[in-house]
Design a protein around this nucleic acid. Structure first.
Lengths: 340, 340
DNA sequence: GTGAAAGCGCTAACAC
DNA sequence: GTGTTAGCGCTTTCAC
C-alpha cells in the first residue's frame, strides 16, 4: 500500500514536520504563507486526501448519523422510507455529514443493531423512526448520552426530542368530514397497535364518532400491518359485515389503496358505494384520487436531521418536540353517503 | 468522558496487559482459560464495547460499503431505490457489514462525493447504480484500487464487474408481443438517453420493429425523465400526433403509470383504445394491472452486495458480469389493436 | 512559525 | 500464556 498518501508522505517530501503539514492543510493561520503554499502544492500534486478514520479517532467525532430501518420481510415498499431518507440525506450533505444505514426488523436483534452503532461509537447521533408503545429503542437510547431524535412520540417516562404528525387531529378532521357527508358506519383499518401513531389516529376517529354521538364498535376496527395485503384483508373483513360500512379510513395510503382495489374488484364504485381515505399522501395516491392526510415526509426528514445536528453541536432547540398538523387532501375517493 | 470503557480500563481492572485483554476478547486461543474468563467477566460487567473507529484504523478496513444515490430534485419516489437498499441492507447484515449512504445528484459535485468515500477511506467497496454513457463514476473508480460493482453496464474502455438486466431482450420480447397483438404504431417513452439502460431498451424496441419490417420513426420516441411528470408529457406528445400510436411502451413503470392516467383522463380506455406497458414491476404496477417487465430489484441488491463482498475478500467471482433476463408480466393494460 | 511528543483505541510482531 | 513495543493517520498541547 505504498500508494497511500498521508501527512507523513507530504512531510518527507517538503521537509516540514507532520504537525506543520497538518496545520497548513487544515487552514490554521499560524503557518507562514510560503510554507502553506509549498505544502498545498505538494499535497495537491500527490493527491492527498485526509484519512477519515484517523481523523474520527482523534476527534472522537464521526460526522455521521445513524438510521436503522425497522422493516419486516424482504422489502419495504412503503415509499414513506425512501422519501424520508432522501430528506435526511440532502440535509446531511449540507453539513458534510454522512448517513450510516441499517436494515433491521423489530425483534430481539434490534437493540444489538443500535448498540453496535452507539457503543461502537460509529455515529454522533441517531434518528429513530416509527416509534412504538414504550419504545425499547428510545428507552435504550435514554440510557446513553448519544443525541437522538425520534420521528414519533412514545409513552416512555422521560423527555426526548421528537417530531411527529398530529395524527389524532388529522384523523379527527377526516372522520368529521366523512360524518358530514352522511356516513354513519365508518370502518377503520388501523396500523399495528404497538405503533404509537396507530393509537393516535384511531383516537381521532373515536373522538369524532363520540362528538357525533355515534357508538364506537370494535367490529369496525381492523388491525392491519401497513402493507397492501393488510389493506386487502381489512377491506374484506369490513365489507363482509352484516352492517357494511359506507366509508373506510385506513391508517396509511398503502392499505387504503389496496382496500380500494379490493372494493372495486367486488363491484363497488369508490366515492359512491364506498368512500375510502388514507394517510400519508405518498406517490401513487393522487393517481388513484385518494382522499388522504398529507405528511410532508421529505421535509420531516430534513427537519429531523437539522434538529439532530443542533443537538450534536450542543445548540439549543427552539422546538424540541414538534407536532405538525397533517393536511386533509380531499379527492374523489370520498363522497356523500348514498346508502339510506 | 470517563464513561468510556476501553481495553485500558479492563487492563487496569484485571491487571492484565491491554494486549492480553484484546486477545481474550477477540477469542484468540493463546490465552489461558482462567484469564479469558476473568477478562470476559470484567468486560461484561463494565459493558465493554469495542471502538469501531479504532479498529478500523488499525485494520485498515471499515466493513462498510458505500452507495451514492444519484437522485435529482427533492425526492426520489421511485420505489426502485428503496427496494434496492432493502436488498443491500439485508445482505450486508448477514456479514456484519454496514452501509454508508449518500444522496447526490449527478453533476460537478458527484465525483467529490465518491472521492470523499474512496480517498477518505470510508468504505471497503462501492456499489454504483443507474450507470450512464461513458460513466464518469466508473471511470474514476477504475483509476482507484477500490473494489466496486455496478448495477448496469457502461461503454468505458475497461473491464469492470456488473449486474444488469438485459433490457434489450426484454423490450424486444415486449414489443414483439405488442406487434403480435396487431399494433403497428407503438410509441416509446424513453429514459434519458445518457442512461445506459435507456439505450438498451430502446434498441430492443428498434430491433423488434425491424424484424417486423416496420419503419422506425423518431416521432414515436419521447425522451422522458423517469418521473411521473415525464410520463405524462410523453403520453401527451405521442397522443397528439396525427397518426396516434395504439400502444405505448415506457422505460419504467412510473412513467407508464402516469401515461396511463393521462390517457384515461382524455377518455381512452386502457387495454382497448390504447395499450400501455412499462418496465420494473414496482409496487403499484399490479394494482394498475400494468403489463411490464419484471426486474427483481430486491434480489439484485442482494446479489450486488454479495458480489462486492467477494471482491473485498479477494475471492473469485463465478460471474463477474451478470446479465439477467427480465420477465414479461402480461396484465390488462395491453390488448389487441382494435384500431383498423 | 515550527517541531517534538503524546495520544485517540485498537491490533500485531516479537520477545520471553 | 503474557507483556513490551510499535504503529494505523491524524490532531493537539507545549516547548522553542
Amino acid at each position: 500500500m505504498s500508494g497511500q498518501v498521508t501527512l507523513k508522505t507530504i512531510s518527507k517530501q517538503t521537509g516540514f514536520s507532520v504537525t506543520t503539514v497538518s496545520r497548513a492543510l487544515t487552514g490554521y493561520d499560524d503557518v507562514s504563507k510560503e510554507t502553506r503554499e509549498k505544502i498545498l502544492e505538494v499535497a495537491n500534486g500527490l493527491g492527498y486526501y485526509p484519512n477519515f478514520t484517523a481523523r474520527q479517532l482523534q476527534k472522537q467525532r464521526t460526522d455521521t448519523i445513524g438510521l436503522i430501518l425497522p422493516t419486516y420481510g424482504p422489502r419495504f415498499n412503503d415509499p414513506y422510507f425512501s422519501e424520508l431518507i432522501s430528506g435526511i440525506g440532502n440535509q446531511l450533505s449540507r453539513f458534510g455529514m454522512s448517513l450510516l444505514l441499517s436494515v433491521q426488523a423489530p425483534g430481539p436483534n434490534e437493540i444489538s443493531a443500535y448498540r453496535h452503532m452507539v457503543e461502537g461509537k460509529r455515529v454522533d447521533g441517531l434518528i429513530v423512526v416509527r416509534t412504538r408503545n414504550e419504545d425499547d429503542r428510545i428507552k435504550y437510547l435514554l440510557t446513553t448520552t448519544l443525541p437522538f431524535v425520534a420521528f414519533g412520540r412514545s409513552n416512555v417516562d422521560a423527555f426526548f426530542n421528537y417530531i411527529d404528525e398530529d395524527g389524532e387531529a388529522g384523523v379527527y378532521e377526516l372522520t368529521k368530514y366523512l360524518l358530514d357527508l352522511g356516513h354513519r358506519r365508518i370502518g377503520f383499518i388501523s396500523a399495528p397497535f404497538n405503533l404509537m401513531f396507530a393509537n393516535f389516529r384511531l383516537e381521532g376517529y373515536r373522538k369524532a364518532l363520540e362528538d357525533y354521538g355515534i357508538d364506537f364498535s370494535n367490529e369496525y376496527i381492523y388491525e392491519g400491518d401497513l402493507t397492501r395485503k393488510g389493506g386487502e384483508l381489512g377491506a374484506k373483513k369490513l365489507l363482509s359485515l352484516n352492517q357494511k360500512p359506507t366509508a373506510i379510513i385506513a391508517s396509511n395510503d398503502l392499505m387504503a389503496l389496496s382496500a380500494m382495489t379490493y372494493a372495486q374488484d367486488i363491484g363497488l364504485t369508490i366515492g359512491k358505494d364506498l368512500s375510502i381515505a388514507g394517510f400519508d399522501d405518498v406517490t401513487p395516491s393522487d393517481i388513484f384520487s385518494l382522499t388522504t392526510l398529507r405528511q410532508p415526509i421529505y421535509n420531516i426528514g430534513c427537519l429531523l436531521t437539522s434538529m439532530l445536528q443542533k443537538l450534536i453541536q450542543n445548540e439549543p432547540l427552539d422546538e424540541p418536540q414538534l407536532l405538525l398538523k397533517p393536511q386533509l387532501i380531499i379527492r374523489n375517493s370520498t363522497g356523500i353517503n348514498i346508502d339510506g
